[in-house]
Amino acid sequence: MPELSRDEVRHLADLARIDLSDAELDHLAPQLNVILEAVASIQGVAGDDVAATSHPIPMTNVFREDVIRPSLTPAQALAMAPATEDDKFSVPRILGEE
């Protein structure tokens, strides 16, 4: 089991869009390694002959008819938004500086 370095933890936090401070990194990185060490035991337990299960109760073909159901009103949709304008969700600028 490879140890996660601080930089790797920072990279994971980047992927997950969490702005971890240095102090948080110091605190979390060793805990993550303890957890990963504990789960590493499953490596190699099940071979190629074992199928993966993603749902405990196997089902297929669960569909709905192509029928319109009532939507929310814009007031309902936008009620909890941090910022709105013209019945749209207002979000900070999407790209960083060019």
Partner: peptide, 25 residues
């Protein structure tokens, strides 16, 4: 008529956020 995973209508050009529900939002 309706979206991929919910019952909201798909017609083009509706007023903003009138074709949304908990699922597609």
């Amino acid at each position: 008529n309706s979206k991929m995973f919910c019952g909201c209508p798909t017609v083009f050009g509706g007023e903003p956020n009138t074709q949304v529900c908990p699922t597609c939002l």
